[in-house]
């Protein structure tokens, strides 16, 4: 009897072990397969469009007339590039300086105060950023445009970029703080003992050491900014044209997808075109992500 209970117990334990390991393996496979599933799903949908036109024709044409089957993505791609790069240019120096300040100069208390600030900024939903953009940034941009004698409603590339910059700051900053924290203290001690000032040490020793990490943090910022949808959509103006200045309205790729989902099933090929936009987003973002991650991994090995 006792033996029976024991074997029973063993069997149950074994079964439980097997079952849970099986489920874990399923989850593991799901995650590994996910990027490929995403890719094929979008590819199948958008490939309908390739039957009629070549990819280069689609990407480098600026004619967007869904009703007559003309899908040129150039205005959207150019708008996305404008918004993304301006936002990273705004965010990058702020993040870099703040990261250096928090890790090298500031007292621990300051870092303790800033950590929740960064976390809360990172957690605010993008629609809230959009509302904030409409309340404060858009009128402000309109006023700035006035100083340059440009007439602008404020709903412009610049407004989108400023809102985006604030959104990606916590993201870039967190990585930069990690990067600066992992630099061994001996390095700066050696430099300081040779008579360099603190700033010279930071500029010529630490930042040089952290350079790959800094570049990859900006790369991750680019990929984050490129795919951001609702906040940008709310402030960027959404006019289909190739923008030539920062005070003009733009129409980035994510906004294109989000704005037209309603009518995409009523116009032929429209859904394929929007899926192609999603595919372009996915590929660009993934390339930037992979590049940046690769640099980080490579750099971690060196330390």
């Amino acid at each position: 009897m006792r033996a029976l209970v024991l074997t029973n117990f063993k069997l149950r334990r074994n079964l439980r072990e097997k079952l849970s390991t099986f489920w874990m393996k399923c989850c593991y496979i799901l995650v590994l397969a996910m990027p490929f599933i995403l890719l094929t799903g979008l590819l199948i949908k958008s490939s309908l469009l390739f039957g009629e036109k070549s990819l280069t024709e689609l990407i480098f044409s600026s004619e967007w007339k869904p009703m007559s089957g003309k899908f040129g993505f150039l205005p959207f791609i150019i708008s996305s590039l404008w918004v993304t790069f301006i936002s990273v240019i705004i965010a990058a120096p702020i993040c870099l300086l703040t990261a250096i300040y928090l890790t090298q100069y500031a007292r621990r208390v300051v870092l303790k105060i800033m950590q929740p600030v960064i976390d809360i900024l990172a957690g605010i939903p993008s629609v809230i950023y959009g509302v904030w953009g409409i309340i404060i940034i858009v009128p402000f941009v309109s006023k700035i445009a006035g100083w340059f004698n440009v007439h602008s409603s404020g709903y412009s590339i610049l407004a989108g970029a400023v809102v985006l910059a604030v959104m990606i700051i916590p993201f870039i900053l967190n990585i930069l703080i990690e990067v600066y924290k992992t630099i061994p203290i001996e390095l700066s001690e050696a430099s300081l003992s040779l008579g360099a000032t603190k700033w010279e040490t930071i500029k010529k020793v630490l930042t040089r050491k952290a350079f790959p990490g800094i570049i990859s943090s900006f790369g991750l910022g680019v990929s984050r900014a490129f795919g951001e949808t609702i906040a940008v959509l709310m402030v960027v103006g959404n006019v289909v044209h190739i923008p030539t200045g920062i005070f003009q309205a733009g129409y980035p790729l994510p906004a294109l997808i989000a704005n037209n989902y309603g009518e995409m099933l009523s116009i032929p090929m429209y859904d394929s075109a929007l899926m192609l936009a999603a595919l372009i987003l996915f590929i660009v973002v993934t390339i930037f992500n992979m590049g940046s991650r690769y640099i980080i991994i490579h750099y971690e090995k060196k330390i």
Binding site: V31, P35, G227, A258
Partner: peptide, 18 residues
């Protein structure tokens, strides 16, 4: 971890479209 980081970076609009 690498795959998860890639997936984390994919914009939510792409998940929406998918």
């Amino acid at each position: 971890r690498f795959f998860l980081d890639l997936l984390w970076g994919v914009p939510s609009i792409v998940y929406g479209a998918f």
